[in-house]
Design a protein around this nucleic acid. Structure first.
Lengths: 110, 110
DNA sequence: CATTTATATCGCAATATTACGATATAAAAT
DNA sequence: ATTTTATATCGTAATATTGCGATATAAATG
């Protein structure tokens, strides 16, 4: 025991959980933030932007990448990372739907 | 080593990470989903809705509650849980901002 | 070709999460 | 007053994450 019972939940619930989990760390929120701030997506200096060792940053980038939140393409010596719009659009849609669902249903006891 | 370097990141990045972490599990996504589906927020049967033991569900509810995603008020014998709109609004706003920022900046290399 | 630069992976220690049975608590029903 | 019902907490085992030094890889530069 101690392992997430992934198979017991719906595909959709798991899909959302995977995306959220990938972003559920301040370093990874900071990485997304940084990728938004730079105007080009040639981002070879993410390591210098974060208060973490190079190996750790690389791991965080891998986590974001394997969840589909960022894309990385080899650019000669270094790697060009940028945000994958699709996954952000999915999350945006997810929370927008929850919010509008809350607005229309308006619970009356809390 | 092995502990998240919370202090090294901004308050805002940590705040978002805490909210996302609370939702970053299929059981907790399922709980939010269920709370949305029921029309009243007297939700004493969340345990029966999930494929997990009562103790485990209670822990997940605690996690959602301490992150501020749900509220629970004692209703006699049982507890009335419902979604806390504020936190959902925050997350909705966060992803909407990322999305619109992506739209305006439109990277040209990926 | 040796060196530098950029990034990834390995191995490991510290810590955190997930799950559940057992037990506690406290209100409701009998 | 005892039992039932609803929920929380404790203890603990299994697993996952976080972080980093060391090392690997591979392109760029000298």
């Amino acid at each position: 025991m101690g392992i997430t019972k992934t198979a017991a939940f719906t595909k959709e619930h798991n899909r959302i959980a995977v995306l959220l989990k990938a972003m559920a760390h301040p370093a990874r929120v900071a990485i997304i933030d940084y990728l938004l701030q730079v105007d080009t997506c040639i981002c070879g200096d993410i390591v210098n932007e974060l208060p973490l060792a190079q190996a750790t940053v690389s791991q965080h980038l891998k986590a974001l990448k394997s969840a589909g939140l960022i894309k990385g393409t080899i650019e000669g010596n270094s790697i060009c990372y940028c945000i994958d719009e699709t996954s952000i659009a999915d999350l945006r849609h997810y929370f927008a739907q929850i919010y509008s669902s809350l607005e229309t249903k308006r619970k009356n006891c809390c």
